[in-house]
Amino acid sequence: MVIKLLTLASAALLLGACASQNGEDLLASGGVPTPACDTSHVTYAGTVAPILQQCSGCHGGSQPSAGFAVGSYAQVSTKAANGQLLGTLNHDAGYSPMPKGGAKLSDCDLAKLRQWVAAGAPNN
């Protein structure tokens, strides 16, 4: 009888230890942890260029669409400085939404791009 109670108590403690203590980290539907969007160490080479690489189908190669090459820091930083980069990617009014005919980039990717632009669009 004592062994059964100890086994039951141990199982209850182990199951309780698996429970999340932070409900904010869980989605309401299914309890799957929400991945964090880290915007603390955004760099051009490590963050911005890889995000924009998904645009290279149209904005890459020797004849990029609209003459804008996402592989060129000079062109990307110019578009960042004049507001066109974020305007088009955010689908803001007055800008041609990109990707053309497609969904916006993820909220996390957009937050990283905003962070980079806010930092002055450094070539780092």
Rank of each mutant, 00 (worst) to 15 (best):
residue 34 T to Q: 14
residue 48 V to Y: 07
residue 38 D to Y: 03
residue 23 G to M: 03
residue 74 A to T: 04
residue 67 G to R: 04
residue 15 L to I: 11
residue 67 G to A: 06
residue 111 A to M: 00
residue 102 G to F: 11
residue 90 N to M: 06
residue 66 A to R: 11
residue 2 V to I: 08
residue 65 S to M: 14
residue 47 T to A: 10
residue 54 Q to Y: 02
residue 91 H to M: 05
residue 76 V to Y: 06
residue 7 T to K: 06
residue 92 D to V: 03
residue 105 L to D: 12
residue 68 F to W: 09
residue 66 A to L: 15
residue 24 E to P: 00
residue 15 L to P: 02
residue 51 I to P: 10
residue 121 A to P: 14
residue 102 G to W: 13
residue 123 N to M: 03
residue 66 A to N: 13
residue 10 S to M: 13
residue 56 S to W: 02
residue 49 A to K: 15
residue 71 G to H: 07
residue 60 G to I: 12
residue 119 A to H: 03
residue 52 L to C: 06
residue 97 P to C: 05
residue 51 I to V: 13
residue 60 G to F: 04
residue 71 G to D: 10
residue 103 A to D: 15
residue 9 A to M: 13
residue 35 P to H: 05
residue 36 A to Q: 12
residue 91 H to K: 10
residue 49 A to W: 06
residue 117 V to E: 14
residue 45 A to G: 11
residue 13 L to A: 13
residue 97 P to A: 11
residue 20 S to N: 11
residue 98 M to D: 10
residue 50 P to S: 01
residue 58 C to T: 09
residue 107 D to T: 13
residue 92 D to Q: 14
residue 67 G to Q: 03
residue 102 G to V: 06
residue 19 A to W: 12
residue 107 D to K: 13
residue 56 S to Y: 07
residue 59 H to F: 05
residue 119 A to S: 15
residue 40 S to T: 15
residue 2 V to E: 13
residue 19 A to V: 15
residue 40 S to W: 01
residue 38 D to P: 02
residue 31 G to V: 02
residue 19 A to Y: 12
residue 7 T to I: 10
residue 67 G to L: 11
residue 28 A to G: 11
residue 21 Q to S: 12
residue 114 R to L: 00
residue 114 R to G: 02
residue 57 G to D: 09
residue 116 W to M: 07
residue 37 C to R: 11
residue 71 G to K: 03
residue 61 G to A: 03
residue 94 G to T: 08
residue 41 H to M: 07
residue 51 I to M: 10
residue 3 I to D: 05
residue 62 S to K: 09
residue 83 G to Y: 05
residue 49 A to Q: 14
residue 42 V to N: 01
residue 124 N to H: 05
residue 28 A to T: 10
residue 96 S to D: 07
residue 22 N to I: 09
residue 98 M to L: 10
residue 84 Q to N: 15
residue 111 A to T: 03
residue 88 T to S: 15
residue 65 S to W: 08
residue 37 C to A: 06
residue 10 S to A: 15
residue 119 A to Q: 14
residue 84 Q to G: 11
residue 104 K to D: 05
residue 116 W to C: 09
residue 123 N to K: 05
residue 20 S to A: 11
residue 42 V to M: 01
residue 30 G to I: 05
residue 38 D to H: 00
residue 32 V to I: 15
residue 79 K to V: 02
residue 59 H to G: 07
residue 98 M to R: 03
residue 34 T to S: 12
residue 34 T to I: 15
residue 43 T to I: 01
residue 35 P to S: 09
residue 119 A to C: 03
residue 124 N to M: 01
residue 100 K to R: 12
residue 42 V to C: 02
residue 69 A to D: 15
residue 62 S to E: 12
residue 6 L to N: 02
residue 96 S to L: 10
residue 39 T to Q: 01
residue 74 A to L: 01
residue 72 S to F: 07
residue 10 S to D: 03
residue 96 S to W: 00
residue 122 P to G: 03
residue 28 A to R: 08
residue 44 Y to P: 12
residue 28 A to M: 11
residue 1 M to Q: 08
residue 121 A to D: 08
residue 14 L to Y: 09
residue 116 W to N: 10
residue 76 V to S: 04
residue 106 S to Q: 13
residue 54 Q to A: 14
residue 60 G to M: 11
residue 13 L to K: 03
residue 76 V to A: 08
residue 28 A to C: 00
residue 23 G to C: 02
residue 38 D to F: 00
residue 23 G to K: 09
residue 22 N to A: 11
